[in-house]
Amino acid sequence: MAEPLIRAEKLVKRFGPFTALNGIDLEIYRGEVHALLGDNGAGKSTLIKVLAGVHQPTEGQLYVEGKPVTFQSPRDATEAGIGTVYQDLALNPLMSVTRNFFMGRELTTGPQPFGLLKMDEMDRITHDEMVKIGIDISDPGQAVGTMSGGQRQTLAIARAIHFGAKVLILDEPTSALGQKQQMEVLKTIARVRARGDIAIIFITHNEVHSNLVADRFTFLALGEVIGKGTKEELKGKDIRHLMAGGVEMADLEQEIAAI
């Protein structure tokens, strides 16, 4: 197998006396969807925040394309090609699709920051980038507040890709959505995957969702990796068991019955 795009080696993250991550190894490969699974509090969000430069690891090392890197800020991570789509999506509801797409990175002619916006070009790029991953917005001047949750998700993803993300981190992108829109987001993930050059880290609680789109799985429990592998390797294993953090379903049934 080729060099991973991102490799984390023995990552430890402590918050004071609390060990949120306890020696995590993780490999992210190009063109793959990597599902990060685990119970609430397992450390998934902490792990991706380390990858995104929000937290600095207490111990351990990150490698991007084989080279050791240290991220001091989210900006460093963005420059290294790691794009995070946060749960709030960092979108502004009152602004148009195009103005959101280029927020902070506007295309202009003339002296900064009073350069005139190249609105036509930005409209065209926004439209094209969104079509590529499956949404044909009719009016790029539409306010983002009037879009559906799935469309917003797609906008945030398209924006991250356009501005150079090689790795997309999606933290529970489906958790706040209805059934149909969850499917839209999964389709978007599948389309990004089909490009072949972008890696996706996909955090979810939903076994069905991860099975639908993921190529590789990592299971976290109490800050440690309790299982990992490709879809093939994990065939026949009890994914639900791993997702529950190693708790036996049978035990659980007994416990519930005993109440």
Binding site: P74, N92, L94, M103, G104, F114
Partner: peptide, 24 residues
């Protein structure tokens, strides 16, 4: 309505944190 500074003004007032996260 026509410049980059204008987009920053809208972005800052709409959702300050998301504007910041996008580099405004």
């Amino acid at each position: 309505s026509r410049t980059q500074a204008g987009n920053w003004i809208f972005a800052t007032g709409d959702n300050r944190e998301s504007a910041r996260a996008n580099g405004v």
